[in-house]
Design a protein around this nucleic acid. Structure first.
Length: 113
DNA sequence: TCAATGACCTGCC
DNA sequence: GGGCAGGCCATTG
C-alpha cells in the first residue's frame, strides 16, 4: 500500500459506488473510464480488495454479463440474489436483459477530476 | 528487485 | 458466427 493520494483501486471504488440502483456495468467500462481499457483485469483485481468495503461489487460483471466473481462472495448465489434484489433478472449467474440494465460510466459520468 | 497472479478483454482460427 | 489462446497493467509476496 503506497501513500498515493488516489490509487487505481480507489478510483475503481468510486465508479462502482456511482453505479445506480438496478444497474450493472462491466470491468472494461470502468477501466475505460479510468483511461485504461487494457487494464480491465486490474479493475477485477481492485474488486478483490473492495471485497469487505462498502463497494457494490455485485453490480460489476464481465462483458458477457456473467457473474464471474460470484464464488468470491460469501455464498455461491449470493451475488445473483443481490442482483435479483435490485430488479435485475439473473439466471444461472448470467444477467438477462444485460443491455437494458447495463450502465456505462463513460456514457453517464464525465471526467471532471 | 524480480517474478507470479488476477472478479478481464480483444483478436485470430 | 462461435470457440480458443494470448496479452495487457497493477498489486502483492
Amino acid at each position: 500500500m503506497r501513500a498515493e493520494p488516489k490509487p487505481f483501486f480507489e478510483k475503481v471504488y468510486e465508479v462502482v459506488r456511482l453505479i445506480p440502483f438496478g444497474r450493472v456495468t462491466s470491468y472494461g467500462a470502468i477501466a475505460k473510464y479510468l483511461g485504461a481499457v487494457r487494464s480491465a483485469r486490474i479493475v477485477g483485481y481492485a474488486m478483490n480488495n473492495s471485497h469487505g468495503k462498502d463497494v457494490p461489487a455485485h453490480r460489476v460483471v464481465n462483458r458477457k454479463g456473467l457473474l464471474t466473481g460470484k464464488h468470491h462472495f460469501d455464498g455461491t448465489n449470493l451475488m445473483q440474489q443481490l442482483l435479483e434484489n435490485e430488479g435485475i433478472v439473473v439466471i444461472d449467474s448470467q444477467i438477462q436483459d444485460l443491455q437494458k440494465v447495463y450502465w456505462d460510466p463513460n456514457q453517464e459520468l464525465k471526467f471532471d477530476d
